[in-house]
Design a protein around this nucleic acid. Structure first.
Lengths: 116, 116
DNA sequence: AGTATCGGTAAGTGCTAGCTTACGGTTCGT
DNA sequence: ACGAACCGTAAGCTAGCACTTACCGATACT
């Protein structure tokens, strides 16, 4: 499992999506997040651990508090991962559409080898 | 919960990521997917139902088989959603960096109001 | 030093996501 | 009409996830 898919998996939880959403606007401490979200502070801590383990968020000690923020580079990595899916699906679709004109019965549509 | 976040949640499962991965390359029937994946055919069916409910995949009857494929537009929507996170986190970061020069002790950093 | 705030972690619980087997319906071939 | 292949759904089980409360260490203030 690549790092990008691990991040995607971490983003699967709606609560963690809310956390990333909030943190993307401005860095927040754990208690501040817990005040906004409908869950307890330890629950927030556990979610932040998950997000931190996959590299989606960064933390920095600020006195007695601990400020969490989103790592833009990590988000960019997830985006690239989705882009790969998107481009491939688009390519497959267009390939299908093109070969619709001369649709023969042969179904070896993978790697046509550009028969010039 | 918006549609994009629902799709993101559906993509949270690693098996579903594999399914989308496979389907992005070329449309496949349920049985073909089950042959590749380490799970049973009904399990694949259930995953496909989840993906279809959020609009990530499309299906079309092909004789006795049922071909599933990825909807590129849906993937694009998820991508845009992540883009929003990314842009905001980047903006927040740069804002922080800029206001680092004149960092006073006041911590009302939200909406400084551009004090000319 | 004493106190308060903040936050990570341990322990325990409920629920549901994901899986399997079993069954039934539909489409194609003979 | 019969059999085969394909697939969706029901039913049931289990592992793990998300949550809570309780506890403890660390940092800052007076």
């Amino acid at each position: 499992m690549t790092n990008a898919s691990a991040m995607l998996t971490a983003l699967g939880d709606p609560t963690r999506q809310s956390i990333v959403d909030a943190l993307s606007r401005e860095p927040l401490a754990v208690g501040e997040l817990a005040r906004v979200l409908p869950i307890s502070r330890p629950a927030v801590s556990q979610h932040l651990k998950v997000l931190k383990d996959v590299g989606l968020v960064l933390d920095r000690q600020e006195g007695t508090r601990r400020l969490y923020r989103v790592d833009p580079d990590a988000l960019a990595e997830v985006r690239r991962h989705l882009d790969a899916f998107w481009e491939r699906s688009l390519a497959a679709f267009e390939h299908r559409t093109r070969s619709e004109e001369d649709h023969s019965d042969r179904h070896d549509q993978h790697d046509p080898g550009d028969p010039a």
